[in-house]
Amino acid sequence: MYLLYPSDPFNKSAVDEEYAEEFAAVIKAGLAYSLFSFEDFESDRFRARPVLPAGVKVVYRGWMMTPESYARG
């Protein structure tokens, strides 16, 4: 399982504080993850850090999006 979390709006290398507890459990469990700026995504600039591996199924654990936003992702 590969997880995708939104980053803190002011620090793209840290998870959004609303997901901090869950994110700590993900790290402790050794699961793979990436962070991305939700604000950049909403401006049509998606960049996951680290880059999402090709061919993996990703579970998004973040803020709700419109159906159009999901289609863009």
Rank of each mutant, 00 (worst) to 15 (best):
G30E: 05
R49C: 11
P6L: 04
R47C: 09
S34R: 02
S43A: 15
F38K: 02
A32M: 13
D8M: 00
Y5G: 03
S34D: 05
Y19P: 08
F36L: 11
A24I: 04
D8V: 03
F23L: 00
L35I: 10
P50K: 04
S37Q: 01
N11P: 00
Y33H: 15
I27G: 03
P67I: 01
K28Q: 14
R45T: 02
R47S: 12
S13V: 09
A24H: 06
A29E: 15
D40E: 15
D40P: 01
L52A: 09
Y60A: 15
L52E: 08
Y5W: 10
A20L: 08
S13P: 00
D16A: 14
M64A: 10
V15H: 09
P50V: 09
D8T: 00
F46S: 01
S7E: 02
D8H: 06
P67R: 01
L35N: 06
A71W: 00
M1H: 11
F41H: 09
V15G: 05
P53R: 07
E68M: 01
F23D: 07
T66H: 02
Y5N: 08
P9K: 07
M65S: 05
V56N: 05
Y33I: 11
L4G: 00
Y19F: 12
S34F: 10
L31D: 13
K57A: 14
E39M: 02
A25N: 12
L3P: 03
F38V: 06
E68W: 01
G55A: 00
G55R: 03
Y60F: 12
S69K: 10
P6F: 10
R61N: 14
S13T: 10
M1S: 14
V56C: 12
G30Q: 10
E39W: 12
D16K: 11
F41P: 01
R49F: 14
V58E: 04
E18S: 12
V59N: 10
A25E: 15
F46K: 01
V56Q: 08
G55F: 01
L31C: 14
D44F: 00
L31W: 13
D40G: 07
P53E: 05
Y19K: 03
G30M: 09
F38E: 07
R45Q: 15
F10K: 07
A54W: 03
T66Q: 03
